[in-house]
Amino acid sequence: MSALAAGAAERGLLGAGRLLGQPRILVGGGILLLVALAALLATWIAPHDPLEQDLLHMLSPPMWADGGEAAFPLGTDSLGRCVLSRAIYGARVALIVGIMSALGAMLIGSTLALLGGYFGGRIDRAIGYVVDLWMSFPPVVLSLILLVGVGTGVDKVILAVVLVDWTRFCRVVRADVLVTRRRDYVLAARLIGFSHLRTLLTEVLPAVTPLIITLFSIEMGVAIIVEATLSFIGLSVPPDVTTWGQMLADARGDIQSALWVMLVPVCAIIVTVLGCNLLGDGLRVALDPRLRQRGE
């Protein structure tokens, strides 16, 4: 048995090495780690309270530009709020929405995909119909309608994203389950006497897990974008919560005079989403042997 354990350990090590050997995973993971740290330590590293208005310093430029001040490293907005502090606090909402929405969409979508793809027949057709029905709506339109119905707040935004984006998991994972389902080892497990549940958990689920992990990472980016969109419209969260989308909406009025106020949240969103996408791409290549071969 020790040989078996050694084999498994070796496989684990190889797996870890493969993950770290992917530059995209390193860069993407690094970005997300930094954003997460900023969000966690916001109280300590942000120079100001994100809502604190300094009416003497309205629209002051970044510290390196003419008239900039060290107290406001990235300048202030039209209400005299510190742009850097707002960006740091904005990461909190972005990450919470990103992680929780992706988690929820993953659980609902993957479960339905596993059930539908594995059992086929009526269950699959019913789930497929609901997915088609859902996908007949442009996704943000559906989120908007949901938010109008249930009201605003971070939890409501998460609910709206989950209820819309589970279909993405369901559709993609189902296709993969169907491929796995046709492999003879699934039939072999059934012929040995494995129950459906056990076959699903020990034979099918491990085969689609890499895909689910990858989708999770990409879904985080999508959720962050949806949150920014909703708060840009002004629907997502109450005004006393700072988000990147809100910062964008506030900065629109001053676009001619104070570009930096807009550029900071723009960059924050792009870099964070890029981190999610890089991580997702890297995981996909590292975890999927077919893609690894062709370097997709």
Partner: peptide, 19 residues
């Protein structure tokens, strides 16, 4: 296609013991 790539030969041969 008949051998689950995530199982070792030992776990494949004696898969029936997991019942």
């Amino acid at each position: 296609s008949a051998l689950n790539p995530r199982r070792s030969v030992y776990r494949l041969l004696t898969q029936a013991y997991e019942l």
